[in-house]
Computed example of a mutant assay.
Amino acid sequence: MKKLILPFAALILFSFSADTTKLNEQDREWMLKHLTETRNHMTQVLEGLTNSQLNFKPDENSWSIAECVEHLAVTENGFGGLIQKTVGAGPNPVLKDSLVFKDEDIMANISDRSNKVKTSEAFEPSGQFESFENTLQAFLEKRNAHIEYVKTTEDDLRNRYSEDLPFGPVDGVQLIIFAAGHTERHVLQMEEVMAHTKFPK
């Protein structure tokens, strides 16, 4: 009997000692705030736009509003995979002192439109969703899934780290805030398109 009890006890001990710290409720509320607010900002900007407005381009090198939405749908899906990878990798406290952002700076830095960044080809709009309605739905489904994850997870996101973003390491909480800031960046881009003098009325 002792031989059976000891391995079982060791298994239970390992399952709890591997990661006993849970997500801080303040961090949870912070992530939910930005994920929700940026989603809502986007849907408010898109409300009532016609096809000609959605597809208007200020110039040949600019994206239309519809293309911005497609980029967001593709990248939101990419963030989903990155969040899973980050959580699945387990704790890596050696990276704690290597973070490139302070929490209070991350939204402003990512959404800053004065800092121009060219996306990689994989995230370029290509019409893959076939219609604007499908594109928007794809974004909303993935964003809502991320919101539900944040509402319910006990994963210690402050002790999970990603080195997959181009500027350097972030922790799991910052990664999710980055996703929200990325949305806001492109919603601001949509508003710039709408402010163009030739934007269809």
Rank of each mutant, 00 (worst) to 15 (best):
F8W: 09
F8R: 00
F8Q: 01
A9D: 08
A9F: 15
L11G: 03
F14C: 11
F16I: 14
T21E: 12
N24L: 06
K33Q: 13
T38I: 02
H41D: 10
M42D: 05
L46M: 08
L49G: 07
N51V: 01
E60S: 15
E60K: 14
E70W: 01
V74S: 05
E76K: 09
G78W: 10
K85A: 15
K85E: 12
K85Q: 14
G90R: 02
N92Q: 14
N92F: 01
L95A: 09
V100I: 15
V100D: 00
E104D: 15
E104N: 14
D105V: 09
I106M: 03
N109P: 04
N109T: 15
D112C: 06
R113L: 11
R113N: 14
A122W: 00
P125V: 04
P125C: 07
S126C: 09
F129A: 09
S131C: 07
F132L: 10
F132V: 11
E133M: 05
N134Y: 02
K142S: 12
K142P: 02
A145G: 12
I147Q: 05
Y149A: 05
D155L: 06
E163Y: 00
P166C: 08
F167G: 04
P169I: 02
D171Y: 10
V173P: 01
I177K: 08
F178S: 02
A180M: 06
G181M: 06
E184H: 11
E191H: 01
E191T: 11
E192R: 11
